[in-house]
Write a protein that binds this DNA or RNA. Structure first.
Length: 290
DNA sequence: AACTTCTTCAACCGCTTCCAG
DNA sequence: CCTGGAAGCGGTTGAAGAAGT
């Protein structure tokens, strides 16, 4: 036996409100108020076949005076994010801090836009922290005098375990000479989950889509993961994500470059991919050699 | 132009909280 | 204190429009 319904569902209208219904509800409430009883309200309004709950929601979220209906300001974004981080999804409490905004509005806005915006920001913060930690680690290494500078190139792109990829040319900038270079082709990103243990490399990166314009990079160093994704309209290449603490995350080649810019003995190089088209994502794994 | 997929947001559902009796 | 009914609340749904193919 379930809970008794708040109204007779067979005799109430549902779905979007018409302008006539809005007008009836609004003018009644403005004239007589709600009477403190939403359930009883619709029966007092001639021709309005709506459930009391529906009337309450319509009034609170749409019809009542002084509601803001436009887009959210930067300041409102900040307030919502800040409160969400502190108290979670208590929308009515959050709405109380934003005059003219309803809890429903804020909830929808959060779920469709703000959540993504905050996640992006947190990711950037995390990347920044990772970079700082990495640089500190390098300083320690340097001070301890155990920096290893590789000097050998071994191309192992024909490793049988990897699917054969299309031929391409690499210009061999000096930083690449410090690594074995593996080409690894996968059908989807999920296969990367096990890549670090299955094909241990110092850094992985991925290129999707077409060839890209020359991008600059100083050198690549230490453990890390970079996904090189779609070519950007400005010709730069976007690196997307890294998944756990042993990975370096970066948003572009410049960031990777800055991660390793202190690396002794390496110089800024230009990496060029010439007129190559890939049907699938191409992954490169680089292993630092001694 | 036609179709599919994605995004938005109003509205609903049902559980929890509140409060009068 | 207990109970029942209404309000409050947050999660979810689905229609409509936008964007992509």
């Amino acid at each position: 036996m379930g809970r008794a319904p708040c109204c007779d569902k067979a005799n109430v209208k549902r779905g979007p409100w018409s302008p006539e219904e809005d007008s009836k509800l609004k003018s009644y409430i403005q004239q007589y108020g709600t009477g403190g009883n939403w359930i009883a309200l619709p029966s007092k309004i001639v021709g309005l076949k709506r459930c009391g709950k529906s009337c309450r929601l319509r009034w609170l979220n749409y019809l009542r005076p002084n509601l803001k209906h436009g887009s959210f300001s930067e300041e409102e974004d900040n307030i919502i994010c800040s409160l969400y981080v502190n108290i979670g999804s208590r929308w009515s409490v959050i709405a109380a801090q934003l005059p003219g905004r309803t809890d429903n509005d804020i909830k929808n806005y959060w779920n469709t836009k703000l959540k993504k915006k905050l996640q992006t920001k947190q990711k950037k913060d995390q990347q920044s922290q990772t970079r700082r930690a990495f640089r500190l680690n390098q300083e320690i290494k340097r001070e301890n005098g155990n920096l290893v500078l590789p000097n050998e190139v071994i191309n192992i792109s024909q490793t049988p375990n990897y699917l054969q990829t299309e031929h391409y040319s690499f210009p061999n900038p000096s930083f690449i000479q410090n690594y074995n270079l593996k080409e690894i082709e996968f059908s989807d990103n999920h296969q990367l989950q096990g890549i670090n243990s299955q094909y241990p490399c110092d850094i992985y990166f991925q290129q999707d889509q077409l060839s890209y314009d020359p991008s600059t990079i100083n050198n690549i160093n230490s453990a890390g993961l970079a996904y090189v994704n779609h070519q950007q309209t400005d010709g730069s290449t976007k690196i997307d994500s890294g998944a756990n603490s042993t990975f370096i995350e970066s948003s572009n080649w410049g960031d990777i470059s800055s991660l390793v810019s202190d690396y002794e003995g390496c110089h800024q190089q230009t990496m060029i991919q010439e007129d190559v088209t890939f049907d699938e994502s191409m992954f490169y794994g680089m292993i630092q050699t001694q």
